[in-house]
Design a protein around this nucleic acid. Structure first.
Lengths: 216, 216
DNA sequence: TTCAAAAACGAACCCGGTACGCTTTATGCT
DNA sequence: AGCATAAAGCGTACCGGGTTCGTTTTTGAA
């Protein structure tokens, strides 16, 4: 129903704008490309472009948010929140990387990592995630009092978890953009997922011995 | 020497711009005030304003960066990096809050927390801090290889530490802007510093028992 | 007093993003 | 098929943050 040719063309246009933008960004860098150029190259008016993507950032960043809070709210009963995260990212690292279009993803990652402005945008989106995760971790009792009054532990945990995941992602993507084949990067990622969640679970004190060798 | 009347007036002008800007931001909100208004109210031209402060953000955020990396590089010998942070923030929480101009700080904090844009700016500045801290934690061997190749643990630790400190600060400032007297907020902060660094040191597993009561 | 450097200035400009009012085009109904 | 309607696209003018550039004022020192 409503197989509308209207919405078909709409999706085509959206796709075309996105592809053109990503190609130009990849060629010349995010900051050096103006939205006017993108609009012209995609054969649409500037105002139409902003109809599809509310900001220049969204041309790159739209649709790449992860939902941290869901991982903990939808975990199997009896599992700790941290184990839910560990299982989730363990599975993600073990996934066959050929399932998704690696090429398109790589371009996107390359554009993002090459632009401080976009990197800041990514981190900005993590802020909201962190708050949602803190609510999911500590607020299951659902009291309506002002946030950050008593649940400091939940906020601390949420902050540490998101910071760790962010770091894992950055390391992984940094390797990909440096030319490492995705299989090898995936293997390293799988190891580091364990390192990261062990660190969260057992703390720095469990690493003290290893640290002193290189850190001091 | 060079007690120059030149640089005196320069500092006066800088101060005047900053005060005027903060007052306007506090009255009507950061986003609702234009730099033209600030310049006019401070009796200078827009271009002169941008000579003193490179961006609108800097009118509020300049000079409030903390140097995380220094805390670890300048720690007393024999002390672990984490203990250095704990000692630093323990001392900060115990400091007599009357030493600094609390009123001016409070206005600044109120302006920042009321503006998502400024909040994002604060988090942006934390990114660089995190990288510097990771380098200080893991890079004392000083190998010149590309970063993030082998020191994932250092990056993870740096990320967790900065995330925790950021959370402590946010909680503290949130209480101040909510009207809590600074002495009481300081007392709570002192407790939470211990909670945060215990969590970092011993991990989530040490909290498992308490968590299950409220989190599940 | 004079002179060069520093600072302030005004005006025009660029870029991301919005508002408004106008044309085009697909769609649903008859 | 034909027509009204609503969605989508468009052009232009505008706004605010930020830069460039050439000019004028101010200041420190000879």
């Amino acid at each position: 129903m409503m197989a509308g040719l209207r919405e078909l063309k709409k999706e085509q246009t959206r796709q075309r704008i996105c592809e053109v933008a990503l190609r130009l960004f990849d060629e010349r860098g995010y900051e050096a490309v103006t939205v006017n150029e993108i609009a012209e190259a995609a054969g649409v008016a500037k105002v139409t472009l902003f109809n599809y993507f509310p900001t220049k950032e969204c041309l790159v960043l739209s649709g790449i948010e992860e939902d941290y809070a869901r991982i903990v709210t939808e975990r199997p009963p009896g599992q700790s929140p941290l184990d839910a995260f560990r299982a989730h990212y363990r599975a993600m690292a073990a996934d066959d990387p050929a399932e998704a279009d690696v090429g398109a993803l790589l371009v996107r990652v390359r554009v993002i990592t090459a632009s401080p402005e976009l990197m800041a945008g990514v981190h900005k989106s993590h802020i909201g995630q962190r708050y949602a995760l803190a609510a999911a971790l500590g607020g299951s009792t659902g009291d309506a009092t002002d946030d950050a009054t008593g649940d400091v532990t939940a906020h601390l945990m949420a902050a540490q978890i998101t910071a760790s995941i962010t770091t894992l992602q950055e390391t992984f993507f940094h390797r990909l953009t440096s030319g490492m084949p995705i299989e090898e990067a995936g293997r390293l990622l799988a190891q580091e997922v364990e390192v990261a969640f062990d660190l969260l679970e057992y703390g720095f004190s469990s690493k003290r011995g290893e640290d002193c060798e290189k850190g001091n």
